[in-house]
Write a protein that binds this DNA or RNA. Structure first.
Lengths: 151, 151
DNA sequence: TATTGTTATACTCTATAACTATA
DNA sequence: TATAGTTATAGAGTATAACAATA
Protein backbone atom coordinates (compact mmCIF):
# COMPACT_ATOMS: atom_id res chain seq x y z
CA UNK A 1 0.00 0.00 0.00
CA UNK A 2 2.46 2.71 1.13
CA UNK A 3 5.19 3.38 -1.42
CA UNK A 4 8.70 3.82 -0.06
CA UNK A 5 8.60 7.60 0.03
CA UNK A 6 11.43 9.85 -1.10
CA UNK A 7 13.26 11.67 1.69
CA UNK A 8 12.22 15.22 2.38
CA UNK A 9 14.81 17.87 1.65
CA UNK A 10 16.81 19.03 4.65
CA UNK A 11 14.72 22.20 4.99
CA UNK A 12 11.33 20.52 5.06
CA UNK A 13 12.65 17.62 7.12
CA UNK A 14 13.94 19.88 9.90
CA UNK A 15 10.89 22.14 9.78
CA UNK A 16 8.44 19.25 10.05
CA UNK A 17 10.51 17.52 12.72
CA UNK A 18 10.52 20.73 14.77
CA UNK A 19 6.72 20.94 14.60
CA UNK A 20 6.46 17.27 15.58
CA UNK A 21 8.69 17.70 18.62
CA UNK A 22 7.09 20.99 19.69
CA UNK A 23 3.68 19.38 19.36
CA UNK A 24 4.75 16.62 21.74
CA UNK A 25 6.02 19.17 24.23
CA UNK A 26 2.82 21.20 23.98
CA UNK A 27 0.64 18.12 24.43
CA UNK A 28 2.48 17.03 27.58
CA UNK A 29 2.36 20.57 28.92
CA UNK A 30 -1.36 20.80 28.22
CA UNK A 31 -1.90 17.59 30.18
CA UNK A 32 -0.91 19.67 33.22
CA UNK A 33 -2.86 22.67 31.93
CA UNK A 34 0.38 24.48 31.16
CA UNK A 35 1.22 26.64 28.15
CA UNK A 36 4.59 26.28 26.44
CA UNK A 37 5.90 29.44 28.07
CA UNK A 38 4.77 28.33 31.53
CA UNK A 39 6.53 25.01 30.88
CA UNK A 40 9.69 26.79 29.79
CA UNK A 41 9.48 28.90 32.94
CA UNK A 42 9.35 25.79 35.13
CA UNK A 43 12.10 24.24 33.00
CA UNK A 44 14.60 27.03 33.50
CA UNK A 45 13.84 27.08 37.23
CA UNK A 46 14.79 23.41 37.62
CA UNK A 47 18.45 24.28 38.11
CA UNK A 48 18.39 28.05 38.70
CA UNK A 49 17.01 30.66 41.10
CA UNK A 50 17.13 33.72 38.85
CA UNK A 51 16.08 37.28 39.55
CA UNK A 52 13.19 38.62 37.50
CA UNK A 53 15.62 40.32 35.17
CA UNK A 54 17.68 37.16 34.64
CA UNK A 55 14.48 35.24 34.06
CA UNK A 56 13.32 37.72 31.42
CA UNK A 57 16.67 37.36 29.65
CA UNK A 58 16.58 33.55 29.83
CA UNK A 59 13.08 33.43 28.32
CA UNK A 60 13.74 36.34 25.94
CA UNK A 61 10.82 38.33 27.34
CA UNK A 62 10.33 41.92 28.38
CA UNK A 63 10.55 42.31 32.16
CA UNK A 64 6.88 43.27 32.31
CA UNK A 65 5.96 40.05 30.51
CA UNK A 66 8.01 38.11 33.05
CA UNK A 67 6.09 39.82 35.85
CA UNK A 68 2.77 38.61 34.47
CA UNK A 69 4.10 35.13 33.75
CA UNK A 70 5.40 34.72 37.29
CA UNK A 71 2.20 36.25 38.70
CA UNK A 72 0.08 33.58 37.06
CA UNK A 73 2.46 30.74 37.98
CA UNK A 74 2.62 31.97 41.57
CA UNK A 75 -1.16 32.17 41.79
CA UNK A 76 -1.25 28.49 40.79
CA UNK A 77 1.34 27.60 43.43
CA UNK A 78 4.03 26.57 40.92
CA UNK A 79 6.68 29.17 41.76
CA UNK A 80 7.52 31.48 44.62
CA UNK A 81 9.04 34.95 44.88
CA UNK A 82 11.63 35.46 47.61
CA UNK A 83 13.37 38.75 48.40
CA UNK A 84 17.02 38.93 47.44
CA UNK A 85 19.41 39.56 50.33
CA UNK A 86 22.19 41.25 48.35
CA UNK A 87 20.01 43.83 46.58
CA UNK A 88 16.75 44.97 48.11
CA UNK A 89 15.40 45.90 44.67
CA UNK A 90 15.68 42.29 43.48
CA UNK A 91 13.68 39.15 44.06
CA UNK A 92 14.55 35.54 43.26
CA UNK A 93 12.08 33.15 41.64
CA UNK A 94 12.09 29.50 42.74
CA UNK A 95 10.07 26.37 42.07
CA UNK A 96 7.65 25.14 44.69
CA UNK A 97 7.55 21.38 45.38
CA UNK A 98 4.37 21.26 43.26
CA UNK A 99 6.07 23.09 40.41
CA UNK A 100 9.03 20.75 40.58
CA UNK A 101 6.82 17.68 40.58
CA UNK A 102 4.84 18.88 37.58
CA UNK A 103 7.86 19.80 35.47
CA UNK A 104 9.46 16.44 36.24
CA UNK A 105 6.30 14.61 35.22
CA UNK A 106 6.10 16.54 31.96
CA UNK A 107 9.78 15.98 31.20
CA UNK A 108 9.42 12.25 31.79
CA UNK A 109 6.38 12.02 29.55
CA UNK A 110 8.13 13.97 26.83
CA UNK A 111 11.09 11.60 27.02
CA UNK A 112 8.69 8.71 26.51
CA UNK A 113 7.27 10.49 23.46
CA UNK A 114 10.69 10.93 21.88
CA UNK A 115 11.70 7.35 22.54
CA UNK A 116 8.43 6.21 20.98
CA UNK A 117 8.84 8.49 17.98
CA UNK A 118 12.39 7.24 17.35
CA UNK A 119 11.58 3.59 18.02
CA UNK A 120 11.61 3.07 14.25
CA UNK A 121 15.35 3.80 14.25
CA UNK A 122 18.06 1.29 15.17
CA UNK A 123 20.23 2.11 18.14
CA UNK A 124 23.01 3.10 15.76
CA UNK A 125 20.69 5.38 13.77
CA UNK A 126 19.39 7.02 16.94
CA UNK A 127 22.98 7.73 17.88
CA UNK A 128 23.67 9.14 14.40
CA UNK A 129 20.64 11.40 14.62
CA UNK A 130 21.67 12.64 18.07
CA UNK A 131 25.21 13.28 16.82
CA UNK A 132 24.11 15.20 13.74
CA UNK A 133 21.59 17.27 15.70
CA UNK A 134 24.21 18.03 18.35
CA UNK A 135 26.63 19.23 15.70
CA UNK A 136 24.06 21.61 14.23
CA UNK A 137 23.16 22.92 17.70
CA UNK A 138 26.74 23.46 18.89
CA UNK A 139 27.79 24.97 15.58
CA UNK A 140 24.91 27.42 15.78
CA UNK A 141 25.96 28.37 19.30
CA UNK A 142 29.47 29.08 18.02
CA UNK A 143 28.08 31.23 15.19
CA UNK A 144 26.21 33.30 17.78
CA UNK A 145 29.33 33.60 19.95
CA UNK A 146 31.37 34.67 16.97
CA UNK A 147 28.85 37.35 16.08
CA UNK A 148 28.70 38.57 19.67
CA UNK A 149 32.50 38.74 19.94
CA UNK A 150 33.33 39.90 16.43
CA UNK A 151 30.67 42.58 16.02
CA UNK B 1 39.50 26.55 24.18
CA UNK B 2 36.34 24.58 23.36
CA UNK B 3 36.56 20.89 24.26
CA UNK B 4 35.12 18.40 21.78
CA UNK B 5 31.75 18.12 23.46
CA UNK B 6 29.92 14.86 24.08
CA UNK B 7 26.78 14.36 22.00
CA UNK B 8 23.50 15.24 23.61
CA UNK B 9 21.12 12.36 24.22
CA UNK B 10 18.47 11.90 21.57
CA UNK B 11 15.82 13.55 23.76
CA UNK B 12 17.75 16.74 24.46
CA UNK B 13 19.17 16.84 20.94
CA UNK B 14 15.74 16.77 19.31
CA UNK B 15 14.24 19.17 21.83
CA UNK B 16 17.01 21.74 21.40
CA UNK B 17 17.01 21.34 17.63
CA UNK B 18 13.27 21.96 17.57
CA UNK B 19 13.70 25.21 19.52
CA UNK B 20 16.51 26.26 17.19
CA UNK B 21 14.43 25.68 14.06
CA UNK B 22 11.29 27.26 15.51
CA UNK B 23 13.33 30.27 16.56
CA UNK B 24 14.51 30.70 12.98
CA UNK B 25 10.95 30.48 11.71
CA UNK B 26 9.73 32.98 14.31
CA UNK B 27 12.52 35.42 13.49
CA UNK B 28 11.77 35.35 9.76
CA UNK B 29 8.06 35.71 10.47
CA UNK B 30 8.70 38.65 12.79
CA UNK B 31 10.66 40.37 10.02
CA UNK B 32 7.29 40.67 8.26
CA UNK B 33 5.55 41.48 11.54
CA UNK B 34 3.87 38.07 11.52
CA UNK B 35 3.28 35.71 14.43
CA UNK B 36 3.92 31.99 14.04
CA UNK B 37 0.21 31.25 13.71
CA UNK B 38 -0.27 33.95 11.08
CA UNK B 39 2.69 32.47 9.20
CA UNK B 40 1.22 28.98 9.43
CA UNK B 41 -2.06 30.39 8.16
CA UNK B 42 -0.35 31.84 5.08
CA UNK B 43 1.63 28.62 4.72
CA UNK B 44 -1.38 26.33 4.54
CA UNK B 45 -3.06 28.71 2.07
CA UNK B 46 -0.16 28.45 -0.38
CA UNK B 47 -1.66 25.36 -1.98
CA UNK B 48 -5.22 25.26 -0.63
CA UNK B 49 -8.44 27.30 -0.58
CA UNK B 50 -10.08 25.83 2.51
CA UNK B 51 -13.37 26.69 4.15
CA UNK B 52 -13.19 28.15 7.65
CA UNK B 53 -13.92 24.75 9.10
CA UNK B 54 -11.19 23.04 7.06
CA UNK B 55 -8.80 25.81 8.05
CA UNK B 56 -9.58 25.34 11.73
CA UNK B 57 -8.88 21.62 11.39
CA UNK B 58 -5.62 22.20 9.48
CA UNK B 59 -4.35 24.60 12.14
CA UNK B 60 -5.87 22.61 15.01
CA UNK B 61 -7.86 25.59 16.24
CA UNK B 62 -11.41 26.10 17.36
CA UNK B 63 -13.56 27.59 14.58
CA UNK B 64 -14.00 30.78 16.61
CA UNK B 65 -10.22 31.15 16.86
CA UNK B 66 -9.97 30.72 13.10
CA UNK B 67 -12.51 33.51 12.67
CA UNK B 68 -10.37 35.94 14.64
CA UNK B 69 -7.17 34.82 12.94
CA UNK B 70 -8.63 35.34 9.47
CA UNK B 71 -10.19 38.64 10.58
CA UNK B 72 -6.79 40.04 11.50
CA UNK B 73 -5.08 38.68 8.39
CA UNK B 74 -7.85 40.05 6.18
CA UNK B 75 -7.60 43.47 7.83
CA UNK B 76 -3.91 43.49 6.86
CA UNK B 77 -4.72 42.51 3.29
CA UNK B 78 -3.01 39.11 3.48
CA UNK B 79 -6.03 36.87 2.89
CA UNK B 80 -9.51 37.20 1.43
CA UNK B 81 -12.88 35.60 2.21
CA UNK B 82 -14.94 34.52 -0.79
CA UNK B 83 -18.42 32.98 -0.61
CA UNK B 84 -18.62 29.31 -1.47
CA UNK B 85 -20.83 28.44 -4.42
CA UNK B 86 -21.72 24.91 -3.38
CA UNK B 87 -22.87 25.71 0.17
CA UNK B 88 -24.17 29.15 1.03
CA UNK B 89 -23.20 28.66 4.68
CA UNK B 90 -19.51 28.29 3.74
CA UNK B 91 -16.78 30.67 2.71
CA UNK B 92 -13.37 29.95 1.21
CA UNK B 93 -10.19 31.62 2.42
CA UNK B 94 -7.52 32.52 -0.14
CA UNK B 95 -4.19 34.31 -0.21
CA UNK B 96 -4.01 37.80 -1.69
CA UNK B 97 -1.03 38.59 -3.95
CA UNK B 98 0.50 40.43 -0.96
CA UNK B 99 0.00 37.44 1.30
CA UNK B 100 1.56 35.15 -1.29
CA UNK B 101 4.55 37.42 -1.74
CA UNK B 102 5.16 37.67 2.00
CA UNK B 103 4.93 33.94 2.67
CA UNK B 104 7.29 33.24 -0.24
CA UNK B 105 9.80 35.75 1.10
CA UNK B 106 9.67 34.24 4.58
CA UNK B 107 10.01 30.70 3.22
CA UNK B 108 13.05 31.69 1.18
CA UNK B 109 14.71 33.36 4.14
CA UNK B 110 14.01 30.35 6.33
CA UNK B 111 15.59 28.07 3.73
CA UNK B 112 18.70 30.25 3.86
CA UNK B 113 18.73 29.90 7.66
CA UNK B 114 18.58 26.12 7.50
CA UNK B 115 21.30 25.89 4.88
CA UNK B 116 23.47 28.15 7.01
CA UNK B 117 22.77 26.17 10.17
CA UNK B 118 23.66 22.89 8.47
CA UNK B 119 26.68 24.28 6.61
CA UNK B 120 28.86 22.54 9.22
CA UNK B 121 27.69 19.17 7.86
CA UNK B 122 29.09 17.48 4.76
CA UNK B 123 26.71 16.87 1.89
CA UNK B 124 26.54 13.22 2.91
CA UNK B 125 25.76 14.10 6.54
CA UNK B 126 23.08 16.57 5.48
CA UNK B 127 21.52 13.77 3.47
CA UNK B 128 21.77 11.40 6.45
CA UNK B 129 20.10 13.95 8.71
CA UNK B 130 17.29 14.52 6.21
CA UNK B 131 16.81 10.76 5.84
CA UNK B 132 16.67 10.09 9.57
CA UNK B 133 14.32 13.02 10.19
CA UNK B 134 12.08 11.87 7.35
CA UNK B 135 11.88 8.38 8.81
CA UNK B 136 10.82 9.72 12.20
CA UNK B 137 8.22 12.00 10.60
CA UNK B 138 6.70 9.36 8.32
CA UNK B 139 6.73 6.72 11.05
CA UNK B 140 4.90 9.13 13.35
CA UNK B 141 2.30 9.73 10.65
CA UNK B 142 1.78 5.97 10.35
CA UNK B 143 1.36 5.66 14.12
CA UNK B 144 -1.37 8.30 13.98
CA UNK B 145 -3.05 6.54 11.07
CA UNK B 146 -2.92 3.25 12.92
CA UNK B 147 -4.54 4.78 15.97
CA UNK B 148 -7.21 6.46 13.87
CA UNK B 149 -8.03 3.23 12.03
CA UNK B 150 -7.58 0.74 14.84
CA UNK B 151 -9.33 2.66 17.61
C1' DT C 1 -32.08 18.77 13.49
C1' DA C 2 -27.35 19.37 12.05
C1' DT C 3 -23.74 22.24 10.15
C1' DT C 4 -21.16 26.71 9.01
C1' DG C 5 -19.58 30.63 10.58
C1' DT C 6 -19.75 34.74 13.77
C1' DT C 7 -20.23 37.09 18.17
C1' DA C 8 -19.76 37.74 23.20
C1' DT C 9 -16.90 36.83 26.81
C1' DA C 10 -12.93 35.63 29.49
C1' DC C 11 -8.41 34.36 29.90
C1' DT C 12 -3.19 34.00 28.68
C1' DC C 13 0.60 36.17 26.66
C1' DT C 14 3.17 40.05 24.92
C1' DA C 15 5.26 44.81 24.56
C1' DT C 16 5.55 49.96 25.57
C1' DA C 17 5.45 53.56 28.73
C1' DA C 18 5.11 55.34 33.20
C1' DC C 19 5.83 54.52 37.88
C1' DT C 20 8.10 53.18 42.78
C1' DA C 21 11.87 51.78 45.42
C1' DT C 22 16.56 51.07 45.83
C1' DA C 23 21.39 51.63 44.38
C1' DT D 1 21.20 58.95 37.47
C1' DA D 2 20.67 54.11 36.76
C1' DT D 3 18.64 49.65 37.83
C1' DA D 4 14.93 46.15 39.52
C1' DG D 5 10.48 45.32 39.43
C1' DT D 6 5.43 46.48 38.99
C1' DT D 7 1.36 48.64 36.98
C1' DA D 8 -1.54 50.51 33.27
C1' DT D 9 -2.79 49.81 28.85
C1' DA D 10 -3.41 47.83 24.32
C1' DG D 11 -3.47 44.19 21.29
C1' DA D 12 -2.92 39.12 19.50
C1' DG D 13 -4.36 34.62 20.25
C1' DT D 14 -7.19 31.02 22.34
C1' DA D 15 -11.49 28.42 23.92
C1' DT D 16 -16.48 28.03 25.43
C1' DA D 17 -21.11 29.11 24.81
C1' DA D 18 -24.77 31.22 22.44
C1' DC D 19 -26.39 32.78 18.13
C1' DA D 20 -27.98 33.34 12.89
C1' DA D 21 -28.25 31.43 8.45
C1' DT D 22 -28.41 27.53 5.64
C1' DA D 23 -28.72 22.57 4.81
Amino acid sequence: MAQPEADLGIVDALAQLSFLVQGMLAKRAAAHDLSMIQTRLLGVLRDREPTMQELARLLELDKSSATGLVDRAEKRGLVKRTPSIEDRRSIRVTLTPLGRRIVSDAAGAFQTDIMSATACLSTADKKRLATLATRVITDYGRQLDGRALGG
